[in-house]
């Protein structure tokens, strides 16, 4: 099913992470699509572990930022320090200057720092002391967020959330998975034994190849219709933005790519829809009161929206 290289990455990661194949695949999708991931779940389900494993398997420069309320933007970007030897200001890179950046508990820091991170994610560069510093490539942020603790947190504004290509929910392992987890970690530390299976250059190549994945007009139509549906549904207060449409396409391309296909299927759109739209759709108070969740709504749209099977585009 998967592209062989992708399969090898997944296999490598799975030596550490038990189960979670979909989460791994989606994370890879985000990486290859050049987007970023927001991992959302309760503590202890292995978010950090996943990201660490990820970076190890792909031989990328891993950086970790543990967000705290007192963190400043410069703590991320790095600062220029005066070097007394050279009598010059020297740039000390901050933790953002890595390939894979784990932004742990992103909602714990102030909006000021958050926006600095998100700006960097979008621009792929930071400005330190008026100097533009280009971030390394590939640049991939995996931010985690704890959805249940609200005390002392700064929830990410919707506009910021839009910058994450995918929001992935980890979920608890199943019974068998958890049993396997126990035996795997009983004696040894699998992460230590993990060797990278792919180089940075290969990742960059794959990222380029993803852009070549063909998106037919039928599938584009399907995506646009889906986004329109999210805007027109009476339960939504805010639907998908055009950026969401773009995100859907990129995610679809990457998803198709990792599944060893050079064209996007409606199935890819369906597979990506919740992850792409879940954090971009805002429900009305009434819908929330009725107990609807964005994921449910998205599923409803997918279940009813006819899949275009034509080559030509039919205007609605």
């Amino acid at each position: 099913m998967y592209r062989p290289t992708v399969q090898s990455i997944i296999t490598a990661i799975e030596t550490v992470i038990v189960g979670k194949e979909e989460v791994i695949a989606k994370s890879l999708t985000a990486l290859l699509a050049g987007g970023h991931v927001l991992l959302e779940d309760v503590p202890g389900v292995g978010k950090t572990m996943l990201v660490r494993t990820f970076s190890r398997a792909i031989d990328l420069d891993f950086k970790r930022i543990q967000f705290t309320p007192d963190m400043l933007p410069s703590d991320l970007t790095g600062i220029s320090m005066y070097n007394q030897k050279t009598r010059e200001f020297e740039y000390r890179p901050g933790p953002l200057m890595g390939n894979i950046v784990l932004a742990d508990e992103i909602n714990r820091t102030s909006p000021k720092t958050q926006s600095a991170l998100l700006e960097a994610m979008a621009e792929r560069s930071v400005t330190v002391d008026g100097e533009l510093k280009v971030l390394p490539s590939p640049f991939f942020v995996m931010a985690t967020q704890n959805p249940i603790e609200h005390e002392g947190t700064y929830p990410l504004p919707e506009a910021q959330l839009d910058r994450f290509l995918l929001k992935i929910e980890m979920g608890y392992p199943t019974f068998n998975e958890e049993m396997a987890l126990l035996s795997r970690f009983e004696k040894e530390e699998p992460l230590e034994a993990l060797h990278s299976v792919i180089t940075k250059q290969e990742v960059e190549l794959m990222q380029r190849e993803v852009r070549d994945v063909h998106v037919s007009s039928a599938v584009k139509q399907y995506m646009v219709r889906l986004i329109h549906e999210s805007r027109n549904d009476p339960h939504t207060y805010l639907g998908g933005s055009p950026r969401a449409t773009l995100a859907l396409m990129k995610a679809g391309q990457a998803w198709a790519y990792i599944h060893n296909r050079d064209f996007v299927l409606p199935d890819d759109v369906k597979a990506m829809a919740t992850s792409v739209l879940g954090h971009r759709v805002l429900l009305t108070a009434e819908a929330r009161y009725k107990g609807k969740t964005p994921n449910q709504l998205i599923q409803d749209w997918l279940d009813t929206l006819p899949v275009p099977m034509d080559r030509e585009v039919n205007e609605v």
């Binding site: 037919s216 599938v219 050079d262 064209f263 996007v264 299927l265 099977m309 080559r311």
Partner: peptide
């Protein structure tokens, strides 16, 4: 085959 024709065009 259908997908090849329609989605891969």
């Amino acid at each position: 085959l259908f997908e090849q024709a329609i989605y891969a065009e």
